[in-house]
Amino acid sequence: MSESNASATRITPGNALRPEDIAASDVRPSEAVAEYALRLGDDALILAQRLGWWISRAPELEEDVALGNIALDQIGHARSFLTYAARAWDKTEDDLAYFRGEDEFRSTHLVEQPNGDFARTIARQLVVSQYQFALYSRLVSSSDATLAAIAAKAVKEVDYHRDHARQWVLRLALGTEESRRRMIEGLILTWPYVGELFEDDSLVKELEGTAVLPSSLRESFDAEIHGLFAEADLEVPEVPAAVGGGRRGEHSEHLGYLLAEMQVLAREHPGATW
């Protein structure tokens, strides 16, 4: 690890790290670290793909811009994590994004859930951003300097995403009767996919000190959600948890369509540059 630290001196936590910097660096992650980076990158990528739909369709123009900023942050995180992961296999971010099959994606079921109405998107945003905020807050201390550096930039950005989601949960829950009904419905549709985010497996255990143990994030996640829900007069939905498996490449039926659309052009022209 000390060796990789030495060669990664340019990438220090707090620097505005760009995917191009990671591609140009000579740090090569181990296979296990790359697998872990894939998970984080895929979550961000699939979420960005979902959020991008809202640009030109949001409830108000100001919100087009706000959701656009969030999607752009997520795509930035995805590019950094995927670029780093790709180095382990001498590939590029685009090889991973465009030429992997559905069962090779390591994202959770939560991020592939449909946008639904604005309330459902906000419910998903709330869960993702609270989870990512807790995760990146800890990842900044990772023994892997590159992961730590990516997290250092990302944590500030998802802090804002978290704030954005919380503001909207309050407004929708306490706004009108209709918005409250939709907010509750959005949370009910989202909650089955919360549990998967906090599942540990052999990879994260093996990467102790480098990866963040998902189960260790649950407590702070719950505390923040409870605080918000108390203010918004909401309750945590009591719904059965869905069977996850995204980290093993077992996805719901939504991901196939999402990837088909995302990858179609790149796959039509294999080997082309854009």
Binding site: E62, V65, A66, D163, H164, Q167, R171
Partner: peptide, 15 residues
């Protein structure tokens, strides 16, 4: 345009 001050300052940040 924003519904209240909290959202106005956030929209201003984004815009």
């Amino acid at each position: 345009h924003a519904p209240d001050a909290d959202m106005a300052v956030r929209n201003a940040r984004d815009l």
